[in-house]
Amino acid sequence: MQWITLFQKELLENWRNYKWIWVPLAIVLIASMDPITSYYLPQIMEAVGGMPEGASFELPDFQPSDVVMMSISQISSLGVLIIVLMSMGTIAGERKSGVSELILVKPVSYNNYITAKWAGLLVLVWASLFLGMLSSWYYVNILFGVLSFISILKVVFFYGLWLSLVATVSIFYNTLFKTPGLVAFLSIATIMLSSLITKIFGQRFEWSPNNISIYIKEMLVTGSVSADLLATALITIGIIAVLLIGSIFTYKTKELAN
């Protein structure tokens, strides 16, 4: 099947340019940084010094769920940045260098081309997130306390939806513009704008994908999946589908216009 071939080409390419090595490792580092530094905070403070004599510093007592959410918030900032930067050239770069013409001159459908790219990116993102949260879970368990593996899997599933949305936004801008830098800038601007809108109009956008980490935290504390979380997840999937269809459409019209 054509789609499988394109998808395999995508995986091979991401392996050849080392994305399969450095993206998971980078996400693992990002996810495990906070559990380690917050565990060693007293020693770090002592080593750095600068505390006046006799001053006592009350350190908060971290719950395992707090620490997992620290990892998530690190992935939300640095991890999202990495995903956007590594995906900024997936289609835009190929169009600039003329590789996409080489592929699309053959009877390759636009649907297959875009969705194979998208799926290749998503597999990488999900694998990285899984490994990152696995390392965070490992550190939480040896440093802070027990957290069940099932709850980490749930976190990966729901948070993966948010990262999928980020990747899809990047794919969407990839089909619109040929300059990778512009793609990265617009993707990050869109994500920041959507979080700003969610914050300002909090009541109206209760189920905005930006709120998904709030509900994930709720899920970690209570242990049950709330209706809000499910609704947010469904809306996120819906926006991903719309963006994907939109990117196939814009790519078709753009390529035909050229």
Binding site: Y18, I21, W22, L25, A26, V28, L29, S32, I36, Y39, S135, Y139, I142, L143
Partner: peptide, 16 residues
């Protein structure tokens, strides 16, 4: 045991 994985990952990234 906590720091070692961290250092290993950093070494792999650097080498690759």
């Amino acid at each position: 045991a906590v720091i070692a994985p961290f250092l290993v990952i950093q070494a792999i990234l650097l080498l690759v």
